[in-house]
């Protein structure tokens, strides 16, 4: 796939739209899966996927080909998703963690996440992390939802490894304070 990506990226730089469409076709599903962590709304997610590829096209000449195209694209998608959160931060309408349905799912998931369906787990994690400021939300999404290593998270965000660890520690503390009583670590 890397060879194909390289060939199509070069052709795209030469103005070949079909080559860029092939790149989009190969990677759009992975980008959509990543951006599902940034929004649960399908329409918005498609818009963010589109924005990611438009941004990728604009900075295609900056892709050296040394790193995998997919990895380069993930960094762009992270930036697009984070920018979306920041824009939404003021007017964000999030599910309240005091919502009884959410509390029940949280209680079932605590300790035994297999008790909830993957979609429910995703909804839960999204609702929980949406309570946080964009920086906190980003670091926890990358580390716990995407399963990134500290190094990966540092590369995606452009932060240092130390910064990622510090930000994650603080974000976890802030998240714990937002949890309903009974689900906070010290109360279990």
């Amino acid at each position: 796939m890397d060879e194909e990506d390289l060939a199509d990226a070069r052709a795209s730089l030469g103005g070949d739209g079909a080559a860029f469409a092939r790149l989009v076709g190969r990677h759009q599903q992975a980008v959509a899966a990543q951006l599902a962590r940034f929004t649960r709304d399908r329409g918005l997610r498609e818009q963010l996927v589109q924005d990611t590829f438009v941004e990728a096209w604009r900075s295609l000449s900056g892709w050296s080909g040394r790193a995998a195209f997919a990895a380069w694209l993930r960094t762009i998608a992270t930036r697009v998703g984070y920018r979306f959160w920041r824009e939404q931060a003021r007017a964000r309408a999030t599910q309240d963690v005091d919502d009884p349905r959410l509390q029940s799912a949280l209680a079932r998931a605590a300790g035994t996440p297999q008790a909830v369906q993957p979609r429910e787990a995703a909804e839960l994690l999204h609702a929980l992390l949406a309570q946080l400021a964009p920086r906190d939300r980003l670091v926890l999404t990358l580390l716990y939802w995407e399963g990134c290593s500290v190094q990966d998270a540092a590369e995606r965000t452009g932060w240092s490894r130390t910064m990622v660890k510090v930000q994650a520690f603080r974000a976890r503390r802030r998240l714990e304070k937002l949890l309903p009583a009974g689900l906070r670590p010290e109360e279990r």
């Binding site: 959509a32 998931a109 995703a122 994690l125």
Partner: peptide, 10 residues
């Protein structure tokens, strides 16, 4: 929870 959420099919 993150691991479980990653199993979601988008």
């Amino acid at each position: 929870l993150g691991q479980r959420a990653r199993e979601e099919r988008v």
